[in-house]
Design a protein around this nucleic acid. Structure first.
Length: 647
RNA sequence: GCCGACGUAGCUCAGGGGUAGAGCGCUUCCUUGGUAAGGAAGAGGUCAGGGGUUCAAAUCCCCUCGUUGGCUCCA
């Protein structure tokens, strides 16, 4: 007699189930193995508990650990489990919020008068696992606002009360597992038994609601897994990430440095780092030349009025490096925080015809931004950096084509540097806070639509973020995943209808009338600093051969072969192979070890044999002895490796 | 900018109220050695900077600077 509902599964198949069946019931009907792994269900786009009944026809996706949403449900439930453990160990603790994040979860905790220190972490982890073994189910109940308030009033948790205050009556739910009840929208995994491994990763301080006027809570970061093995692998990955830290490798390989005397956040590029950077620049210059860009050079400072015109002064002036005054009364200059205003003035040097658009002005421009001191981090966040900048001035009817060409350029750059995984983030205005942005609604709508359209046409994997736009226009940001699957923002493309307006840029159209061009800002690397940092971590300092500052090390067996070694070195230099000659009075084993530590791709060992035959004994970094090659054979091999890398 | 931790030789770090330690690196000498560390000797530090407590401070306290984990921010 029970009514049936139609369920559409992700593979397109349709099945019928009694009304009120849950995701778990559906899983059970497919296979027991699946049922054991189901963490939650996505029902018509909404993620719900696996045991929630489904009352109408729906598209249903069963979420497991392999789904992002499954993981996040798992971690959110783990946050509740950690809270339960904390409550058991520290009676009377109060809780803020405890969401899942990328790579785990956290919970903000107010320990009151109780002490919590890092020695307690193991105890907390053990308690979590002990509770998890109880296989307590996560039970959802709907409560009224009054009931919710009553519960937390009695418990004395002012943070939850604060949260409830903003919730609408009738939408409030509690989740209970074991002895712990929490205010929570859900969803959750079926029971705590799924959680087999737990690690508290980090303890930090965070203000309630992120406001420094509020009380500071202890934020406990944790991660959990359905298998112990996965936790072990995760911890190994974190260990590997630490080894790849670009700050560490940058120091070890002498790529860059910082000096207290020069100032915080102001990187000093050492010779090897500079070599690397310049090769990256040359690579992009070449690609840009092909794509029709015109390189330009502009000063590091600009009159304050330039930034008043651009709108940047009003927006960022107070938080920037302050104006530089000159002997002339009232005259003020600013370190340039971006290159666009200068490029606008280049556009304006003479009247422009529609025939010369698009005009693509490119500059590796050094810019200076007074980032908050607490935000500085290695090369990824600095106060002086170089944008691989370009501004494309084009007619409105050219925007799409130009946008697509830029996407192609960005993809070419990523591919050449070994970044295979990326998503394109479409950053739009926050529709609820239009005050933050300058310009007309109409222009914004047009620009946003253009980005969405071209991204779709290029088949980019995209995510849309509201409120992430620049103040002058929407953006398409490229988030790449590195070798450790960490996500970084690199390239950016931005459509801008505002600056042309502010700078009164014009071109004469075919109709002999004045028209306003559209500007596209773009930087495939983002910044040289940030890109190098990400590249270092991506390849753990083992750069593609063509980028490596020291590509070969010539290691003579003894000083008797010094002359031959030098001859080899000189010939390599002729072929644009860079490196060094290790003339030290050390044994070959030692020279090899040092070259290996420096991650030099090729070691060329030369002694009596090689000298007699005009050859080199080749050893490749981490791979060992490759045997003997004539010098020209080696050069040919080297060249073909580089050619292969650059596709 | 805010909260916490940290700052000892070029690097990695030990020490800790009573005149500064190790390994690596560096310099010199010996050694001329065939695929991841040859041997010996030597140089090198106002213990981040400033102030205080003390007979005595690298060590305890305060401030400043810097680094770092977070929070907030990011043209």
């Amino acid at each position: 007699m029970s009514e049936l509902i139609k369920v559409t599964l992700p593979d397109g198949s349709e099945r019928e189930y009694p009304k009120g069946s849950s995701g778990m019931d559906i899983a059970m009907s497919i296979s027991e193995g699946l049922a054991r792994n189901v963490l939650a269900a996505k029902v018509s786009g909404e993620i719900v508990d696996a045991n929630r009944g489904i009352d109408s026809d729906a598209k249903v996706q069963l979420l497991t650990w392999n789904d992002l949403e499954g993981k996040s449900t798992f971690w959110h439930s783990s946050a509740h489990l950690m809270a339960e453990a904390l409550e058991a160990l520290y009676p009377g603790v109060k809780f803020g919020i405890g969401p899942a994040i990328e790579g785990g979860f956290y919970y903000d905790v107010d320990f009151g008068d109780q002490e919590f220190n890092s020695q307690d972490l193991k105890q907390l982890e053990d308690k979590m696992l002990e509770l998890a073994r109880g296989k307590n189910s996560y039970e959802r109940t709907e409560v009224s606002k009054a009931e919710a308030e009553k519960y937390f009033l009695e418990k004395g948790d002012e943070y939850k009360l604060d949260l409830i205050k903003d919730l609408e009556d009738g939408t409030i739910t509690f989740y209970k597992q074991g002895n712990f009840t929490d205010l929570c929208r859900g969803p959750h995994i079926p029971n705590t038994g799924f959680i087999k491994a737990a690690k508290i990763l980090n303890v930090a301080a965070a203000y309630w609601r992120g406001d420094e006027k509020n009380k500071q809570l202890t934020r406990l970061y944790g991660i959990t897994f359905p298998k112990q093995k996965e936790l072990t692998e995760h911890m190994e990955m974190l260990e590997e990430a630490k080894k790849r830290d670009h700050r560490k490798i940058g120091q070890e390989l002498e790529l860059f440095a910082f000096s207290e005397k020069v100032g915080m956040g102001l990187p000093l590029w050492l010779p090897k780092g500079t070599a690397l950077r310049e090769r990256l620049e040359q690579f992009l210059r070449k690609a840009q030349t092909k794509a029709g860009y015109s390189p330009v050079i502009t000063p590091h400072i600009g009159n304050k009025n330039l930034y008043i015109t651009s709108g940047h002064y009003e927006k960022y002036g107070a938080d920037s490096f302050q104006p530089i005054s000159t002997p002339k009364e009232g005259e003020e200059f600013m370190l340039k925080p971006m290159n666009c205003p200068h490029h606008c003035e280049i556009y304006k040097v003479r009247p422009r015809s529609y025939k010369e658009l698009p005009l693509r002005l490119a500059e590796f421009g050094n810019v200076y931004r007074y980032e908050q001191s607490g935000e500085l981090h290695g090369l990824t966040r600095v106060r002086s950096f170089t944008v691989d900048d370009a501004h494309i001035f084009c007619r409105p009817d050219q925007v799409e084509e130009e946008f697509k060409a830029v996407i192609d350029l960005v993809l070419y750059v990523f591919k050449s540097l070994g970044f295979e995984n990326f998503t394109a983030q479409i950053s739009l205005r926050d529709p609820d806070d239009k005050e933050k942005y300058i310009g007309e609604d109409e222009a914004w709508d047009k620009a946003e639509a253009a980005i969405i359209k071209t991204a779709a046409e290029k088949g980019l994997p995209t995510v849309v973020e509201l409120g992430e736009a620049a103040f002058y226009g929407p953006k398409l940001d490229f988030m790449v995943r590195d070798a450790l699957n960490r996500s970084w923002q690199l390239g950016t493309i931005q459509v801008d209808y505002q600056l042309p307006e502010r700078f009164e840029l014009e071109y004469i159209g075919a109709d002999n009338e004045k028209h306003r061009p559209v500007m596209i800002h773009r930087a495939p690397f983002g910044s040289m600093e940030r890109f190098v940092a990400v590249l270092i971590e991506h390849c753990a300092g083992n750069f593609p051969l063509w980028l490596t500052p020291e590509q070969v090390a010539i290691l003579p067996i003894s000083e008797k072969y010094q002359d031959y070694a030098e001859a080899v070195f000189n010939q390599l230099k002729e072929h644009d192979v860079t490196g060094y000659l290790d003339e030290r009075d050390e044994k070959i084993g030692r020279k090899i070890r040092d070259a290996e530590m420096k991650k030099v791709p090729f070691m060329l060992i030369v002694g009596e044999k090689e000298q007699e035959t005009g050859s080199v004994s080749v050893r490749e970094h981490t791979k060992g002895d490759l045997g003997s090659l004539k010098l020209d054979e080696f050069i040919a091999m080297f060249d073909s490796r580089v050619a292969a890398e650059l596709g």
